[in-house]
Write a protein that binds this DNA or RNA. Structure first.
Lengths: 350, 350
DNA sequence: CTGAAAGCGCTTACAG
DNA sequence: CTGAAAGCGCTTACAG
């Protein structure tokens, strides 16, 4: 049934081929000193003849309590460039330490997150980096309580007892909103991820806070949140802007939403009329007319730093939990500097 | 030293807590039938009290020869959206089968690829999906010979004895080149990945073939290949176009290069003068002025299909190797339809 | 329905 | 310098 034709050779197979005890094979494979050159050669020959590869599972089993050389990374969606860049950053650090990264997408769903964490635990990863679901910690909470080294990335649950690296979601959203306000806007629409995602909630709160500080009212329909693809966001925002009283500016609080919003604005011919700022940078944002202003993140650095923190824990550090919160200034490219139309509520149809 | 404070409970710990033999714990944990409800309850309570999690490594060890529930994916760079979308597609299929995906970046380097494959093998993955390095198969070749199910993705080594899923690199490049030729171009510059990458070589060959078929000569300096970041490509292409005799059109044969090329063209004010077509689609390509014409790929589908093939092998299929080669037509958005300037070689400086 | 024995492929003590 | 024994945490036969 299985495509595995011939079973893999074991140490015993190598040993009998080389005419030594399998303990000697173990010594040679692990490059322990004190084996006669003659035997080393014979074993090495047998290893390459048979194509022997040690089984890490068996190896780690006996070394119970020692490290297994793998860490897990539970992220929201590897298909999102933000998270995949983050993964790449983690991978680089892990590789320097000789570690493998097990990664999986949760889509922000606690059930999927729990499945993933269980899988990591079943394989006895040495530590976990996680973008925790807004629905709770689930199994991850047990692992933290048990003492498994965990670092949170991007998101921050209410109670944090472990290391954390994330962007300043609230502060970034405040900056973005203030940027629009400074350019004369008071009627701004906010499009963001579902507030079940912690970072999305923080960004929304930042928007509200900045608006309130400026004494600007947020109309009933001005906040739209949800979990959608770029294409769906484009449709939602197109319908929104084509509908009655359009805002003078929009704030798209996530990379896919920003792409959708840009498409909507262009399709409606409003790209030069309605101001637009995004959270998270995207390719080609500088080349669109007008360029899309954003508050960027540094996903690669976030990943690197999270991994550095995790490996410090794995090395035995027991300092109090670290909180690294990274801010970035607005990148002004044009779309965020459009001033409100003097004639408000210009009528337009798609 | 290790942050692992209290060691994980084992089946024996659960057994002594529940007052049963550890074999009974094994039965309950594996939901085997024929355990009295009373014992099931006592064991279940002990499991949750102690926070017992079975150790998959030990489990698989005894089930020698059976499947371990993990597959490996050796890709070039998870930070590249093309590959991360591919990974996401694989992940979806793997999840349906209850499998975990171990993924890692090779950067096209055979040494890194070998390290990664060795790691996969040491963990006894059931199968491997790989974007093989142009420098050879290395350890992967041994694994294929040994009978490990392997599927190639995106790239195709010279000798293929396993399943393969990839885009039609040569045909896509021919289409792109013909598209430019059909719009009057004969002097086209090609920017591509290093030809050590198999797909890059195929794309270059497609370019050459289409040019030759049209009777167009390729000038000495018209082919530029290398392995660079977007920013470096931008600089290279800027310098190239700012230098003497610029081509009337350019073909950027990879997503990062396309982004770099677009930036270069815009910075030089040539975006409306020199035609441009890319291989692989990118976000916002339709919104730039002019829109960037491309031959797209479907990375998500490539991943899904590769995974489907692998799981068929894991289920025991032993049909001859499958070759799935996917083509896409040109998406014309403007940049690829620019006609050559009547006044050739307009002098411009950056 | 429940359990004691043997073994998966290795490493860790212990002998010689 | 080399090897026979015991054990890692489980599952697979085999007893009762």
């Amino acid at each position: 049934m299985a495509a595995q034709h011939n079973p893999r050779p074991t140490m015993r197979d190598v040993a009998s081929n080389a005419g030594v005890s399998f303990k000697t094979v173990s010594r040679v494979v692990n490059r322990e000193s004190g084996v006669s050159p003659d035997l080393v050669k014979r074993v090495a020959d047998a290893v390459s003849l048979l194509g022997y590869r040690p089984d890490d599972r068996a190896r780690h089993l006996r070394q119970s309590g020692r490290q297994t050389g793998a860490i897990g990374f539970a992220l929201v969606d590897v298909g999102n460039p933000f998270f995949s860049s983050t993964l790449r950053g983690i991978e680089e650090v892990a590789r320097q330490h000789g570690y493998l990264v097990l990664a999986g997408s949760t889509d922000g769903d606690l059930v999927r997150q729990d499945q993933l964490i269980e899988t990591f635990v079943a394989r006895r990863v040495d530590g976990i980096i996680a973008v925790p679901s807004g629905h709770g910690l689930g199994v991850l909470g047990h692992e933290i309580a048990r003492g498994t080294p965990v670092v949170f990335l991007d998101l921050e649950p209410e109670v944090v007892t472990v290391d954390l690296v994330r962007s300043d979601h609230h502060g970034g959203a405040v900056l973005a909103t203030k940027h629009l306000i400074a350019h004369g806007h008071r009627d701004i629409a906010f499009f963001g991820d579902t507030t079940e995602i912690i970072s999305a909630k923080l960004r929304l709160t930042g928007f509200r806070d900045a608006m309130q500080e400026a004494g600007a009212k947020i109309g009933d329909q001005r906040i739209v949140t949800g979990q959608h693809s770029t294409a769906v966001w484009q449709r939602i925002i197109t319908d929104y802007l084509a509908g009655s009283p359009a805002p003078t500016a929009i704030f798209s609080a996530q990379n896919f939403i920003t792409v959708g919003a840009a498409h909507a604005l262009h399709a409606l011919g409003l790209a030069h009329k309605i101001a637009h700022i995004g959270f998270d940078d995207i390719d080609l944002a500088a080349l669109v007319q007008p360029g899309i202003s954003v508050v960027p993140q540094q996903p690669w650095d976030l990943g690197r730093q999270a991994a550095e923190l995790l490996f410090q824990r794995l090395a035995g550090s027991d300092t109090p939990p670290v909180r690294q919160i990274i801010s970035s200034p607005v990148i002004a490219r044009g779309s965020g500097e459009i001033r409100p139309l003097s004639v408000k509520r210009s009528k337009r149809t798609a």
